[in-house]
Nucleic acid binder design. Sequence first.
DNA 1: CAAAATTATTTCAGGCCTAAAATAATTCTG
DNA 2: CAGAATTATTTTAGGCCTGAAATAATTTTG
Lengths: 178, 178
Amino acid sequence: MEPTSPGLMLDRETKANERPGDHKDELRLWLRMLTCSTLIETEIRNRLREEFRTTLPRFDLMAQLDKSSTGMTVGEVSQRLMVSNGNVTAVVAGLLADGLVDKRAATQDRRVQVLTLTAQGRKSFKAMAERHEGWIAELFAGLDQPEIGQLFRLLGQTKTSLHRAIAARANEATKGAA
Amino acid sequence: MEPTSPGLMLDRETKANERPGDHKDELRLWLRMLTCSTLIETEIRNRLREEFRTTLPRFDLMAQLDKSSTGMTVGEVSQRLMVSNGNVTAVVAGLLADGLVDKRAATQDRRVQVLTLTAQGRKSFKAMAERHEGWIAELFAGLDQPEIGQLFRLLGQTKTSLHRAIAARANEATKGAA
DNA sequence: CAAAATTATTTCAGGCCTAAAATAATTCTG
DNA sequence: CAGAATTATTTTAGGCCTGAAATAATTTTG
């Protein structure tokens, strides 16, 4: 394809420059990642429904509350789960109705609603979490420990890259609006 | 950190056997993967909305149709996108209303609905796809080419592992029902 | 060939999720 | 301290998504 006259040093660079506007590899990577996530998520949803008659959003919300002994506000939960406040309000409504979660206004700042698991909620979550961890292990059983570590590390870099790109874009938008 | 008394050979195995029922690494891996997927998906949703006044499900559906010159059935699309038939029906309804997609019963088998992009749909998709590819490249800009390749390969193994585990489970269920 | 089984799609009820507007409480500021 | 700005949450309107039931067309089978 190319004369290859000077040497090998630029191999990677020339390859990248062959098709300047081409980013098919990134696209294929993203589609594959999405496929993996979707497969896992769908399977976990199915198992939660079949074995525990519950849903993933409810499980995720309870998982957040389980990690905090003192309770969490609606805003904290929505940030952690990367969903809107309104969504947390709605999912919590269901958990309240089932007696799994407790909600009360903070005494000092009555705007804030503090959410905690009830005793029943903690017990229920414990049972689900144990099974859940097993399911995830089953799903990743085809990877050995070094591969898991490597994948974890690469996804860490990906996460950094994403935050960077998203922040850059947000900056652009702010600048434009000013 | 470790006594390292007998030798190095069993290092990995002893480590794995230390806590037999522990699968925290897999769990952490899954949560990190989910974070990455969610970040990308949310960002793409936002950009599609801001720049093209459209949604990700609509974009994804059009992407499938764009790949096929002869059109696709509702069932084929739902399989590819890993969503329910009913969902395809609903999203297609919106695209039909906007004149981006055409739907007609197949002549030989009138149960089957064949979906194709209209000329307007193809044109609209082309513009979005170009931008979309650029966005994905931006988001993954923090990874170099070898890292992208490695991540792609590891996710390939993950995908195989997932299919295997999901099929095994489905088998179990069938056996139980028989 | 007609009834039964299968296949493709749509409809339905209900939960998730969002952005934007509304509400409510607190803090800032003149 | 009162009005203004800020902060936390809820409400609302609307789209996505699912599983299960219903509908419609085709194929199988007795």
